[in-house]
């Protein structure tokens, strides 16, 4: 019982941090700040994976791939574009915001309604290690795995083609 309460407290605490950082991504004007906020969001998510969802391997991959590669990559691009704070002219308080907010809230309520009806129990901590995942990944999902590698390769080639000076 005590463990449950502890879990709930952790969940609420991490959830709040996640939501705050997510809002930061959306509402911070400077893209660099947004990217840093996303970094925080991903970091907290990784913590939640370890703390609540007993998935240390995915958490590590999240840190390495998402935070270490993707977001840093995005930051590089932002730096490359050399955007000065003075250039940023975006305004949030527009009719578009309220319309979009309404749509998103409706959607959120729908989705919450859906997840509220999910049945299932709380399975006590049982860590999923890299080996367990590897077994699945290299047997049942081997083909998919290879296809994803092809996809990444193609994406790399595409990125090179797109970013070349002469288009």
């Amino acid at each position: 019982m005590g463990a449950d309460v502890l879990h709930i407290i952790i969940a609420v605490f991490l959830g709040l941090l996640i939501l705050v950082s997510a809002l930061g991504v959306v509402f911070l004007k400077n893209p660099v700040h947004s990217a840093l906020s996303l970094l925080a969001n991903l970091c907290i998510t990784a913590i939640m994976y370890v703390a609540l969802l007993s998935a240390p391997f995915v958490a590590i991959v999240q840190v390495i791939v998402y935070m270490g590669a993707v977001v840093v990559f995005v930051l590089f691009v932002i730096m490359l574009m050399d955007i000065r704070p003075a250039d940023i002219t975006e305004r949030f308080l527009t009719p578009r915001l309220f319309l979009s907010l309404a749509a998103v809230v409706v959607f959120a309520l729908q989705m919450l309604f859906v997840v509220a009806t999910v049945k299932g129990g709380w399975i006590p901590t049982k860590y999923v290690h890299a080996g367990d995942l590897a077994k699945l990944l290299f047997t049942k999902y081997a083909l998919l795995f290879e296809l994803v590698s092809v996809l990444i390769f193609a994406a790399a080639a595409g990125a090179v083609a797109l970013a070349k000076k002469r288009m």
Binding site: R96, L99, S100, A103, V104, V106, F107, Q110, M111, F113, V114
Partner: peptide, 20 residues
């Protein structure tokens, strides 16, 4: 582009609404 995204979201809302 965000307008198109908006239409997509609206479509999803309608479909999910019907499904629910």
């Amino acid at each position: 582009i965000p307008d198109y995204a908006w239409f997509i979201l609206a479509g999803i809302i309608v479909v999910c609404g019907i499904k629910i």
